[in-house]
Design a protein around this nucleic acid. Sequence first.
DNA 1: CATGAATGAGACTTCATTCAT
DNA 2: CATGAATGAAGTCTCATTCAT
Lengths: 210, 210, 210, 210
Amino acid sequence: MTADADLRLRADARRNRDQIIAAAKQVFAEDGPDAPMEEIARRACVGVGTLYRRFPDREALIRGVARDNFAAVLTEARAAAAEEPTSWKALVRLLSRSHELQLSIHLSLVSPLARRVIREDPATGEFRHAILEVLDGIVHGAQAEGMLRRDVASGDIAVVVSMLLRPMPHDDKNMAEMIRDRMLTILLDGLRPGSALPGRPITSDKLRRP
Amino acid sequence: MTADADLRLRADARRNRDQIIAAAKQVFAEDGPDAPMEEIARRACVGVGTLYRRFPDREALIRGVARDNFAAVLTEARAAAAEEPTSWKALVRLLSRSHELQLSIHLSLVSPLARRVIREDPATGEFRHAILEVLDGIVHGAQAEGMLRRDVASGDIAVVVSMLLRPMPHDDKNMAEMIRDRMLTILLDGLRPGSALPGRPITSDKLRRP
Amino acid sequence: MTADADLRLRADARRNRDQIIAAAKQVFAEDGPDAPMEEIARRACVGVGTLYRRFPDREALIRGVARDNFAAVLTEARAAAAEEPTSWKALVRLLSRSHELQLSIHLSLVSPLARRVIREDPATGEFRHAILEVLDGIVHGAQAEGMLRRDVASGDIAVVVSMLLRPMPHDDKNMAEMIRDRMLTILLDGLRPGSALPGRPITSDKLRRP
Amino acid sequence: MTADADLRLRADARRNRDQIIAAAKQVFAEDGPDAPMEEIARRACVGVGTLYRRFPDREALIRGVARDNFAAVLTEARAAAAEEPTSWKALVRLLSRSHELQLSIHLSLVSPLARRVIREDPATGEFRHAILEVLDGIVHGAQAEGMLRRDVASGDIAVVVSMLLRPMPHDDKNMAEMIRDRMLTILLDGLRPGSALPGRPITSDKLRRP
DNA sequence: CATGAATGAGACTTCATTCAT
DNA sequence: CATGAATGAAGTCTCATTCAT
């Protein structure tokens, strides 16, 4: 899930690195990607110095989080495709619970810096590509099953996912979850074969540079 | 549009205030609500001193922007309700073009500070309340017209609006617009009477504390 | 002696600016051009913020000091040329007491950063050019007087000055002064018409990019 | 060349030490004595830990470099005295090419820290003493030969050396060399018997605390 | 009142030094 | 012993806010 270079880290260094990524995910999610580096270091129980040794600057850290994150999403997408009996069910699963994905979306949504960093990182780009490929398969499958309207493509689905996974405007956990479920249903209803959509299907390569 | 106290401002002071709000909207939209105060002052063509005379601190400025913004949305919602021939059309109009609304949503989305400030400001709260009341009327109207599924309430619609108006994940203006149109159609399809939604309708008072 | 833009500064800002330059000269002379900015601010009796408002970063400060410094040297050179009865005496005066010059030399000697900044600043370059022009006149005059060997040019003299004005390797003030006097005499003796020098005279344009 | 204790080092440890000193010389020459320790370690192809095992802190490293350096200078001075046919020629040779010396001078010139460390290190002091003794012999010899003015002492010569060996204000290698040659000739001319110098000869003990 | 200068707290980053592996 | 990871103090710089002009 992480770059090859990291595999050669000493055990303790490796542990630190993971703690830092985990802490950064948390803090980024809570305070946005401008959160103080010290806060992240504290959360990871390391000194700032260690953080900076592993990630030379904020951009590198964002990059690190994004890669780890996209990698996790890819895993999740593959699992959904492999484990669900139908493509439509895989799609529903992806739409309902991709918590990892949420962070990436939040990140690239909120901060111009983060957006740029993510866009410019080739490794993240590859993950994105792989994810969209899996999604492509699911979309075509669901269309073949007659469950999904034929005038959408995996790019449309990516957008739907991103809409669903953005932070819901409610602080209450349960409420937020119910809201999300309702929106999911509305969207799924809207995704069934029905009236024609405007424009052309958003194919995955249209999102290459989001 | 603004609190009563402001009405007594001298003409030039008034102009300053408006310039500042306008500049702040721009800058907040571009750089988020943590943008340097000097930048906002510069854009408004006033000194920081003037900005601080009008808005004692950043929170006051955010408050000012939020009020102005919610007021504009209210105006827009009332216009839609008054001018469109059917409630359903009013709803579609609200969903398609509420650029003012976009900023509020962006603001309360992105920054914990802004979220708190908006939530805690009673004046903004009143605007929100008024907006949801108008929306209530539209929703009931559209349901009476048989165009809108009966298991949604104005709170659900507010959520739908917020989903649609968040920044779309694409830098190309046209692409972003097409994406939005497609999502709008999908959502409208999903909002037509159809399969049952999970949970209970989100009534407007459920969103009182967003 | 300072750039035009500075003339429009408010009176207090102007005073601050001058204090900062003066403090920076002192501190640079004592601790080199890597000295903490805070130290300089303290010496100038201003906050760091003020220092950074006037000079956006260390390079800008070095540049400011260099300009001020070269301007002073130019004044000194012109005074020597104008006030001394013979060119040779003007030359001797320049060689003996150009305390201002000392700092510039120290600066450009000691720190790669300072060297680069000084070299790349066009304003400083113009001062340097003007100084070398004055020196040219003095050199030619002294040669016409028969006091100065004919196989040197103003560039050579600039080098001699720089050798003399570098910090002498002794902490005792008086000792350092005596040492300098002795070296001055040795050098003046060496500069009188005598045995041929190797190479070609260093003309001022050879030092354009020192 | 180095203190006795070092002689007992195992061969590989010895090699490490030498690599470190060599790297430090390079790096000090390029970036000054404040250069990062890691940089020096990297250049020496050892870990920082090894560097710190050999030299407990930066001062110790500077001390090590200074000793090594002064030792080399002493060797060079002795060689000049022994190999040149006349004392004057030995003097000229010392003045023209003492690259080792250059570093010491650079060091003690540039950084207050280095200056203090060098001054306070007894071992370096002894080397300095020995060097000045050799120089004394050369000076007296040259005076006896009638080539050197009688009102100078070895301290004066040390100063002349230090003037000549400081970095010349020019980036072009060839130019710098030509400049140095010209200055050498001027100084040698000035050192021939001639007009009386001011002050008293700088004897070597006057430089004991430079 | 408007202006923009000054302040200083706080965030970022670097690096000397220590210490676990 | 060698290594390079971890630490945190210290320096750089930014910006919210106050205040003199």
